[in-house]
């Protein structure tokens, strides 16, 4: 297999980096966290550039490139939920520029006349409080409904940028017209891979900030990055990121090719991203010393995003259990 970006993918990556540097700078992210700044103009930029339409599964590698860079910028919009939770479960449902999320479990569909009634409460739905649409996975199929059909309440969380919500369905009537026909398994694989790339992007941001810090901070008459105890911790962060990135893009590639290995590959992506954030969070926070412990330091946003990803959609240990069970049969 040939595992590197082609020329177009490299160009996309560069474009995303340039746009993000200009449109989603650290100052904006901080303004969102501190003052709840308006993110609609930023979302508009993403939509105008066509990034919100990168939802055809064959474009998963391109979507992955955008997600990694947005993770690196600690994107404050609902891009991840819209493109990787909602869109794969509801192709063609939303208008361009609309947002969405998904309820993966916790809701049942009970037959009622010609249709069904949706009942139940899903917890920790990413961007559930600010999505225009919801895709609801039930044993009877995947239903898509306008978010106004459910009651969503944002959950107070440690990460000031993270939106997660309790989404409650009380006898919401749906019909066959609400069934999306999407494959919930593949949707889940895209969600896992997207989350992995977001985490990896955040980890890269942590490493960027740490490298900048240890290259300039002086103690004992030397830049602290020259001390091996410091440098080798940074190297371990780099190695963990490289490993997780390789597995995440492999998963994206298997999804794009609709290769059956995508099931194990997506779990590998999520597990490796989880292992990566553990090393990067620990070493990154530690190497920043007291300065990383302050609200004023932007390190916090990337740390919190990376760790939040581990806590959603199953942690590394859960995915390793699946990998251990299925690896030999998956023929990777």
């Amino acid at each position: 297999m040939l595992f590197e970006f082609d020329a177009e993918q490299r160009l996309l990556q560069k474009t995303v980096q340039d746009v993000v540097a200009k449109e989603c700078p650290p100052a904006l992210v901080r303004a969102v966290a501190d003052d709840d700044a308006d993110i609609r103009p930023l979302w508009q930029v993403y939509a105008e550039l066509g990034w919100t339409e990168l939802v055809d599964p064959t474009e998963t590698v391109e979507l992955a490139i955008v997600l990694e860079e947005l993770g690196r910028a600690v994107d404050p919009t609902a891009y991840l939920a819209t493109t990787t939770w909602f869109a794969p479960l509801a192709p063609g449902v939303a208008q361009p520029g609309q947002t969405g999320s998904a309820v993966f479990d916790g809701v049942t569909a009970r037959p009622d006349g010609q249709g069904w009634l949706l009942d139940g409460t899903a917890r920790f739905v990413l961007d559930g409080d600010r999505a225009d649409w919801l895709a609801v996975v039930t044993p009877q199929g995947v239903f898509t409904v306008p978010s106004s059909a459910a009651v969503a309440t944002r959950t107070p969380v440690f990460d000031p940028l993270l939106h997660v919500a309790d989404v409650r369905f009380e006898g919401v009537a749906v019909t066959g017209g609400n069934l999306s026909g999407a494959d919930p398994q593949r949707g889940r694989h895209i969600a896992l891979t997207g989350m992995a790339l977001t985490m990896i992007g955040a980890c890269r941001r942590i490493l960027d900030l740490v490298l900048e810090h240890v290259r300039t901070r002086e103690q004992f008459g030397a830049r602290i990055g020259s001390f091996q105890a410091v440098a080798h911790k940074a190297v371990d962060m780099h190695v963990a990121i490289e490993r997780a990135r390789a597995l995440a893009y492999f998963a994206a590639l298997t999804i794009a090719a609709d290769d059956p290995r995508r099931r194990v590959a997506a779990s590998m992506a999520k597990a490796a991203a989880g292992e990566c954030q553990s090393v990067v969070f620990r070493n990154g926070f530690q190497l920043f010393g007291g300065m990383g412990f302050t609200w004023e330091n932007d390190l916090q946003f990337a740390l919190k995003r990376a760790k939040a990803g581990e806590l959603l959609l199953g942690g590394a240990a859960e995915h390793r259990a699946l990998i251990a069970k299925e690896y030999r049969a998956a023929d990777i």
Binding site: L247, Y249, A271, A321
Partner: peptide, 18 residues
């Protein structure tokens, strides 16, 4: 062991990819 085996499988694939 199973947990470690999964990490091994990931390491093997990641090394090949890199």
């Amino acid at each position: 062991d199973a947990d470690q085996y999964a990490t091994l499988a990931m390491d093997a694939l990641a090394l090949r990819l890199l």
